[in-house]
Nucleic acid binder design. Structure first.
Length: 228
DNA sequence: GCGACAG
DNA sequence: ATCTTGTCGC
């Protein structure tokens, strides 16, 4: 269902922080807004969010694709460029990548039922990774899929679908999920308005061919192939 | 104090 | 993130 109105809106109760101390304070407040209910009854579309870097222009290139969950066809896509307003700091990743991603989400014309972010959700030092941040500010179900873990885990079984708990500070914050036989697992954690079971189920559906979900792969391709 | 540390 | 060759396997 497409229309000309804005489907995803950003509700940001804080000015964007300029120091690491302020950023941590913002996270500690926003994390109280993460919800685990309100899961969508049926997920028909899923958005992939990724950011590429252009060394030549010192710009961030945020790319968002919306895929049909049934066919994995790309139904919509948006690219937004922006200047980095925050240096990369582990744990404060969202303050660097979220601005252009949020702007891109606002410009979509096909509504995504869930957002698949390239990074952590609850599997974060303060339980508020990029996926939680994006999910809360847009009040949209979201999940984080990271290529490397921020917590500790034991290797899951070798079969596709096998998983093991991902621990952060002795708490289960996500899962190491095997999307392909014999390939390094991806690290899935809830962002907002989803359960971990549903999140893993969706990621497996989105990753029938490769280690990473097609949402992430398509957004990554789009971002790095964007015109100069 | 030293190492670890999403992209 | 990005820089990069060859190599193994389906």
């Amino acid at each position: 269902m497409s229309n000309n109105g804005v489907m995803i809106r950003v509700h940001n109760p804080h000015p964007w922080p300029s120091t690491e101390q302020e950023a941590v304070a913002v996270q500690e407040h926003l994390r109280s807004l993460v919800r685990f209910d309100g899961e969508p009854e049926v997920v028909r579309t899923a958005a992939g969010l990724d950011v590429a870097y252009r060394e030549d222009t010192n710009e961030l290139v945020a790319a968002v694709t919306v895929l049909d969950m049934g066919t994995l066809d790309i139904m919509d896509s948006v690219v937004v460029r922006g200047k980095p307003e925050f240096r990369y700091v582990p744990g404060l990743f969202a303050f660097r990548e979220a601005p252009p991603l949020l702007e891109a989400l606002t410009r979509l014309s096909v509504e995504p039922d869930i957002l698949v972010c390239d990074g952590q959700g609850l599997a974060h030092p303060r339980r508020f990774g990029l996926a939680c941040h994006i999910g809360v500010l847009t009040d949209t179900p979201s999940v984080g899929v990271a290529k490397t873990a921020m917590g500790r885990y034991e290797p899951p079984g070798e079969q596709r679908g096998d998983w093991s708990p991902l621990y952060c500070d002795s708490e289960i914050a996500g899962r190491a999920l095997r999307t392909r036989h014999g390939v390094k697992p991806v690290f899935v954690s809830v962002g907002h308005r989803l359960t971990l079971d549903t999140a893993c189920e969706l990621i497996l559906r989105l990753a029938p061919f490769y280690r990473l979900p097609e949402t992430t792969r398509s957004a990554d391709r789009l971002g790095r192939s964007a015109p100069a």
